[in-house]
Design a protein around this nucleic acid. Structure first.
Length: 485
RNA sequence: GGCCCCUUGGUCAAGUGGUUAAGACACCGGCCUUUCACGCCGGUAACAGGGGUUCGAAUCCCCUAGGGGUCACCA
C-alpha cells in the first residue's frame, strides 16, 4: 500500500509550487490506489498561523486535490499537526541522547555568530565546530544553573557517504563531512522540521516522499536520522522547482505566487490543475487538455523533468480561456455572478430571477475572456443606461448621418411591441439601412458606438436582444440629447 | 565559497546513437467577419561552449561556462 503526503507549513497561503507538489502526490496516490495524507508542519511557532492553515486547506479543496487522511479527515496515524505530536518526538530525542547520538549545546546565538565570523575571516566555511560535543555532566549543570536553555544537536558521523536514491534524479551522493552538527530541538523544546519530518514520515508509514527540489540538499541530514534511529528509508522523489520570470525560485517578489490570487482573479481550478500538471511533467502523446482523471491515469515519475520550469502566465491564460469557453454555460455563469455582484451590477437576490438572461450575457462575451474577473468590464453595457464614450470615438458621432440613424431606429423601436431577439434586431437594422440609405461600416460603427461606447464588442444583434427595447431607447435618447447636436 | 541539482526556440516541452530536431503558448502574416474576440491556415525561432568515444552524437564520458538550490534555534 503506497502512502504519500503533502506537508506544508502554515506560514503563508498555498504556494503555486506547493499546489503542484500536492497535485503530484495526489495523482500518484490515486493511480496506485494508495493513501494521500495532509499533514501540517507547524513547528515554527512564530510564523505559523491557524488562518494560513485554513487557507491552505480551502485552496487544496478548491483545486479538487483531496486527501484521504490527515488534518480535517483523521486517520489511524494522527495527530496530523506537528505541535500536537511533541510528546512523540520527545521519546526519539531521548533515545538519541541516551545513545550518544545527540547532545545538548549551550552556545548562544551571539557566540555562534562570532564563531561564524571568525571562520569566515580564516577563509573557512561557517559551520558548527562541535564545541559542546564532549561536554561533561558537571559543565552542563554549571551552564544550566546560569539559566541557559540548550538546544539539542545531532552528532553527525564524519566521512560517510550518504546516497539518496531519487525516483526522478537517480542516485545522488553526499559526503557527511560537509554537514555540521545540526540542531534537532530548539531551545524552546520544539523540534526542528528536519527532525520532525523523519519521525512523522516513519510513524505515518510514508512510502514515497514527493516534494520540491529545495529539499534535496537536506535529505542527507534526514537520512542520517533515519539511520540513527534504525528506521527504514522511504523512496524519495524531488520534483523540479517552479521559477519566476527572473529564473529564481518563485516567491513573493514575483507577485502572484499564491493560489488564492488566481482564484480571486477568476482562474478556474481545472485550468490551474491542468497547467500545473504540465509544468514539469509531460504526457506521452500530444494531448494538452486533461481532466484530473486522465492525469491520474497517465501520471508517471519517468516523465517528470529534472530541470526547473519557468511559470508562464501566458500559457495559463490561454488554458484558462479555453476552459471558460468549453465549460458548461451554466457553470461559468454561476462563477461570474460574484464578480457582477461585486461590481454592483446586480443584487444577490435577483440572480435567480434573471439567471436565464445572465446566461445570455455571459454567453456573448465568454469567448473574449481570459479570466472571470474581466466580466464586469465586458458586460457593463448590459447593466447601465449611461455609456462612457471613449474620447477617440466622439468624432464618429459628429458625422451628418448619425442623427438620421438615431431617429430611424427610435421610430422602428417605437413601432415594435414584440420582444427583440437576434432576428428582429437584424430586421430592424435592415430597415434602417433601407430608409436611410446608410449601410456597412457607416451604419454599424456609429450604432455600435452609440450603444456600447466602444468600437469593439460582441455582435450587435446580440447586444440589442440582450439590452432589450427599453434600454435601447434610453440609450439612444441619451446619445441624442447629450452627444450630438 | 563548499556541497548538490540542472542546461533543446522567448516560454512549456518531445526526443533515450542514425529524425527534414515534434507539438503547445507567445510572436508575426493570411483567411473568416459590420468591430473585437473566437476559429482556421501558414511563418520566424533551439540542441550553452570545448574536448573525447563512435562509421555516426541533442542523445554516452570529461572539462569549462551559465543558471538554480542548500548550508538557520525557517520549512
Amino acid at each position: 500500500m503506497e502512502r504519500v503526503r503533502f506537508a506544508p507549513s502554515p506560514t503563508g497561503y498555498l504556494h503555486i509550487g506547493g499546489a503542484r507538489t500536492a497535485l503530484f502526490n495526489f495523482l500518484y496516490a490515486r493511480q496506485k490506489q494508495g493513501t494521500f495524507i495532509l499533514r501540517i508542519e507547524d513547528t515554527d511557532l512564530q510564523r505559523s498561523s491557524k488562518e494560513s492553515e485554513e487557507v491552505i486547506i480551502r485552496d487544496l479543496q478548491w483545486l479538487s486535490i483531496e486527501w484521504d487522511e490527515g488534518v480535517g479527515k483523521g486517520g489511524d496515524y494522527g495527530p496530523y499537526r506537528s505541535t500536537e505530536r511533541l510528546h512523540i518526538y520527545k521519546e526519539y530525542v531521548e533515545k538519541l541522547l541516551e545513545e550518544g547520538k545527540a547532545y545538548y549545546c549551550y552556545c548562544t546565538p551571539e557566540e555562534l555568530e562570532q564563531q561564524r565570523k571568525q571562520l569566515l575571516e580564516k577563509g573557512e566555511m561557517p559551520r558548527y565546530t562541535g564545541k559542546c560535543r564532549e561536554m561533561t555532566r558537571k559543565e552542563r549543570e554549571a551552564l544550566e544553573a546560569r539559566g541557559l536553555k540548550p538546544v539539542i544537536r545531532f552528532k553527525v558521523p564524519q566521512n560517510q557517504t550518504i546516497s539518496v536514491n531519487d525516483l526522478i534524479r537517480g542516485k545522488v551522493e553526499f559526503d557527511s563531512s560537509g554537514i555540521g552538527d545540526f540542531v534537532i530541538v530548539k531551545s524552546n523544546g520544539i523540534p526542528v522540521y528536519n527532525f520532525a519530518v523523519v519521525i512523522d514520515d516513519h510513524l505515518m508509514k510514508i512510502t514515497n516522499v514527493i516534494r520540491g527540489e529545495e529539499h534535496l540538499s537536506n535529505t542527507p541530514r534526514q537520512i542520517l536520522i533515519y539511520k540513527a534511529l534504525g528506521f527504514e528509508l522511504p523512496k524519495f522523489a524531488h520534483v523540479p522547482l517552479i521559477l519566476g520570470k527572473d529564473r529564481t525560485k518563485m516567491s513573493k517578489r514575483h507577485g502572484s505566487t499564491w493560489v488564492e490570487h488566481y482564484r480571486d482573479q477568476g482562474y478556474l481550478p481545472d485550468a490551474i490543475v491542468n497547467f500545473l500538471a504540465l509544468l514539469g511533467w509531460s504526457p506521452e502523446g500530444e494531448q494538452e487538455f486533461f481532466t484530473i482523471e486522465e492525469l491520474v491515469e497517465q501520471f508517471s515519475f519517468d516523465r517528470v523533468a529534472k530541470n526547473p520550469a519557468i511559470f508562464d502566465i501566458d500559457k495559463l491564460n490561454w488554458m484558462n480561456s479555453h476552459y471558460i469557453k468549453k465549460s458548461p454555460l451554466d457553470k461559468i455563469t454561476r462563477l461570474c455572478v460574484p464578480y457582477l455582484i461585486d461590481a454592483g451590477f446586480i443584487q444577490e437576490d435577483e440572480v435567480e430571477a434573471k439567471f436565464e438572461w445572465l446566461k445570455q450575457v455571459v454567453e456573448t462575451v465568454r469567448e473574449s475572456l481570459t479570466v472571470l474577473s474581466e466580466i464586469p468590464a465586458k458586460t457593463e453595457i448590459f447593466f447601465k443606461d449611461k455609456i462612457s464614450l471613449e474620447e477617440e470615438n466622439v468624432h464618429i458621432l459628429k458625422r451628418e448621418h448619425v442623427k438620421e440613424l438615431i431617429n430611424a431606429f427610435l421610430k422602428l423601436l417605437d413601432e415594435t411591441d414584440r420582444h427583440i431577439d437576434d432576428n428582429l434586431a437584424k430586421q430592424i437594422f435592415k430597415k434602417v439601412q433601407k430608409t436611410t440609405g446608410v449601410k456597412g461600416k457607416n451604419l454599424y460603427m456609429p450604432m455600435r458606438i452609440m450603444l456600447t461606447g466602444k468600437t469593439h464588442g460582441p455582435e450587435l444583434f446580440k447586444v440589442c436582444s440582450i439590452m432589450g427595447k427599453e434600454r435601447l431607447i434610453k440609450r439612444l435618447e441619451y446619445v441624442k440629447q447629450n452627444m450630438i447636436q
